[in-house]
Design a protein around this nucleic acid. Structure first.
Lengths: 331, 331
DNA sequence: TTGTATGCGTTATCAA
DNA sequence: TTGATAACGCATACAA
């Protein structure tokens, strides 16, 4: 039951350990016959290279660290799915960690990933500070920010066109006749929250309207957050006629609240989400949302990272993926 | 920027490389003074042990492989979240892979995990065959099956009490007066699908009723599957008055179909899901479901695995977690 | 084209 | 209590 090593293969094939290595790694300096022989022996012995030894020697582990906010958030799930698929294609393994949007946890996650000696890191930073990311920069390990970026840090990232998304969502609501449009935004230290808000304001401006500060809420990240914030917001007499939620995840909470308050959507309350996750279409009514492809973002970020790992650093690449309005029945 | 190694620490502290190792690993055979000295030097130099070298030497990587059907399925997301949290607690890293319920992909995933020399594997088998799992057994790597098990294989597993769940769901529908109760089941090679079906039949029997074979569909795993199957099932004249779906994920598709067909839930159609995922409560109406805790299952499976890794094999442990009916408004 | 020898950073076995 | 030394499995510079 012992593991078959290169030595075993070499011995069995009657060549040196090193010739065996060459054969198995497609090195040029080897005769076709010996190569074939070694390959056959390796096959028959069921040889599997020991990645640890290889990694130790070559300083490449073939793994990447993936750090996201919340694994159970469908946006991140889809993101991770896109990453995992792409990674597999490139023969990388994915070490997954969730931060629950906690800064300390983010720091820990980065340290763990570094300790695992991953070849690169894909991270959705909590943005509660920059120390963690600066530590990452200092480590020299290639990394790509996903979905969020730092204005003050010159790093690779792949994000959605959040400002445009915020604009599209808000414009859509305005065009449907809404004026009292609430925004249940994410925490404002997160770039996507800031930019979606900017898009929101931009739409108001474009249409010569004034937004009502009382309808701006921030800090919503989960279904629960959306639910609570919506309950609060929809309780008063001066309630909004429409809500633009930071994410589908948050929007689901809003729909729950609307449901419990017996508000009809979209007649009493229009709702727009963000991300176009799998479940929007199952809501009642189906959720209007701003779509980018989370899986696509994951894939692009992964590809960018692998490029970095292979080819090294050039100028930072900053990708801003297009979004579009996916209109359904909630508006 | 070079990495600090044990050698550097030993050199700096003026001890042998091996004494340094002992100091850092809390070995008993060392004097308190030297230990303290080494520790201080290590600290100041920013020494981080190289896990690869350690793993190579000790044959323990500190990682586990986690293989699930579909990362974007909220059930699996929650499962993974439970695993990741627990793993972190035990100082293990998680290498995640998805199979998309494809058997070849499962085989590949297992091979990759083995190649990564994980200390153990947590897997939701596709159950399209037993070869993959038998390969796993042969490898000697500890593993725990999650959510599904093989009758014919004597392995560790953690599953929900699916039969009871199927019974509870069906009984509930019967008690609400339904007789034409459809089941949109998963593929019947999956143990949980079989057992939920058994529970379904058992409930009919208990109440002296006869199930209608025409209302039994299988093979539903995704939202899309549920949607299509429901459209088909609800189209005819003899349509069911209630549907028991294999999972919340599938139930969401059913709700979508009902919505599009203008069927009122629960008046025209009652719907019960399974798993109690995050979104059931956001549906309209909120989804009645059979709840176990996916995160809890993940945690238990992980704990069991770590126990195996540490203490080695004893008799297989077979855990069947309790379920309960979570009644909401869809029934 | 092939083989020898060395080192990657640890841990473990011995002897001192 | 400590230190020299040998593995762990692989890759590569260099010699043959």
């Amino acid at each position: 039951m012992k593991r078959v090593t290169l030595k075993d293969v070499a011995l069995e094939a009657g060549v040196s350990i090193n010739t065996a290595s060459r054969a198995l790694n497609n090195k040029p300096e080897i005769s076709p016959e010996t190569k074939e022989k070694v390959l056959k022996v390796a096959q028959s012995l069921g040889y599997r290279p020991n990645r640890l030894a290889r990694a130790l020697r070559s300083n490449k582990t073939g793994t990447i660290g993936v750090i996201v906010g919340d694994i159970a958030n469908p946006y991140f799930s889809m993101l991770v799915r896109g990453i995992e698929r792409t990674a597999r294609q490139f023969d990388y393994s994915v070490i997954l960690q969730g931060t629950d949007e906690d800064y300390d946890r983010e720091e820990e996650a980065i340290e763990i990933a570094l300790a695992e000696q991953v070849d690169g890191i894909l991270i959705t930073p909590t943005q509660k500070g920059t120390d963690t990311i600066e530590e990452l920069v200092a480590s020299g390990t290639p990394f790509v920010l996903m979905s969020r970026y730092f204005k003050e840090l010159d790093t690779d990232y792949v994000v959605m066109d959040d400002r445009r998304g915020g604009f599209l969502a808000t414009e859509h609501l305005i065009q449907r006749g809404h004026r009292r449009i609430a925004i249940l935004n994410g925490p404002l230290h997160i770039s996507s929250a800031i930019e979606r808000y900017e898009g929101y304001l931009q739409a108001f401006k474009r249409y010569g309207l004034d937004p009502d500060k009382a309808l701006v809420a921030e800090g919503c990240l989960t279904v629960e957050d959306g639910y609570r914030a919506a309950l609060c917001l929809l309780d008063g007499p001066e309630r909004p006629t429409a809500v633009f939620a930071f994410s589908d995840f948050v929007a689901f909470g809003v729909l729950r609240a609307a449901n419990e308050l017996d508000l009809r959507v979209p007649d009493d309350l229009a709702v727009v989400g963000f991300d176009d996750t799998l479940f929007g279409v199952c809501m009642r009514p189906p959720l209007t949302t701003v779509g980018g492809s989370p899986e696509g973002l994951g894939e692009q970020a992964a590809r960018l990272l692998f490029d970095r790992v292979d080819r090294g650093q050039t100028d930072p690449v900053k990708l801003r993926l297009p979004v579009r309005l996916v209109q359904r029945k909630s508006t």
